[in-house]
């Protein structure tokens, strides 16, 4: 299936506008049969805004007016190009979303391992363990945060404030005494 999805994405990128619209409808019907949530994207405000810009406003303002509807003249070619742009975006976004939903952590681990990053698993697991503790500590500090203090003389500066947040979590045995030495290998 993933190869078919790649093929769909490549097709909507390379095909001319007049072919994209019917092809996109077919692809979306297929995606809908796989996942009922794919059409939710059409309810989003940002999607409707994009549609208004590329398929409604653009044909009215740009290009030679060839058609007229309710007294408003617009470019027929502009409508086709705008709709093709919109369809292309919807197909690409849904294709990537479907691939994303079908990807599990195991395949990501396998992928990074294949690239030679064997430490990924250990760091990712440790990071997940640290996350709640760091979140709690940062939340407390942000609650007690007073922005005015950062600017007063004698009070901690922004860099110091953030360093104070991070340092308690760091492993102290790490030798940090030799400054700027990591580029000397």
């Amino acid at each position: 299936m993933k190869y078919l999805i790649f093929l769909f994405v490549i097709s909507v990128i390379v095909l001319p506008a007049k072919f994209i619209i019917p092809l996109s409808i077919l692809i979306m019907v297929l995606y809908f049969s796989l996942d009922r949530t794919v059409l939710n994207i059409l309810k989003r405000k940002s999607t409707l805004f994009l549609f208004a810009i590329v398929a409604i406003i653009q044909p009215i303002l740009i290009g030679e007016p060839t058609n007229s509807m309710m007294g408003v003249s617009y470019s027929g070619l502009g409508v086709i190009n705008g709709l093709a742009m919109f369809c292309r975006a919807i197909v690409i976004i849904n294709s990537i979303s479907i691939l994303n939903r079908r990807t599990d952590k195991e395949s990501i681990r396998y992928f990074w391992g294949k690239l030679g990053i064997e430490q990924f698993d250990a760091v990712f697991t440790k990071s997940q363990e640290q996350l709640p503790e760091i979140k709690e500590s940062f939340s407390k500090s942000i609650k007690n945060f007073n922005g005015k203090n950062l600017l007063k003389p004698g009070k901690s500066k922004p860099a110091e404030f953030f360093a104070n947040l991070i340092v308690p979590f760091l492993h102290k045995s790490n030798s940090l005494s030799s400054k700027n030495n990591f580029n000397e290998e």
Partner: peptide, 28 residues
């Protein structure tokens, strides 16, 4: 890039500190 991806076996402190920064950045 490929050379940079060849990461040596991490010491305990490097592992923990990488995890801490990843958790901070991930949280943000």
């Amino acid at each position: 890039m490929l050379k940079l991806l060849k990461i040596e076996k991490l010491s305990e402190s490097n592992l923990i500190n990488t995890a801490v920064f990843a958790a901070i950045w991930g949280l943000a």
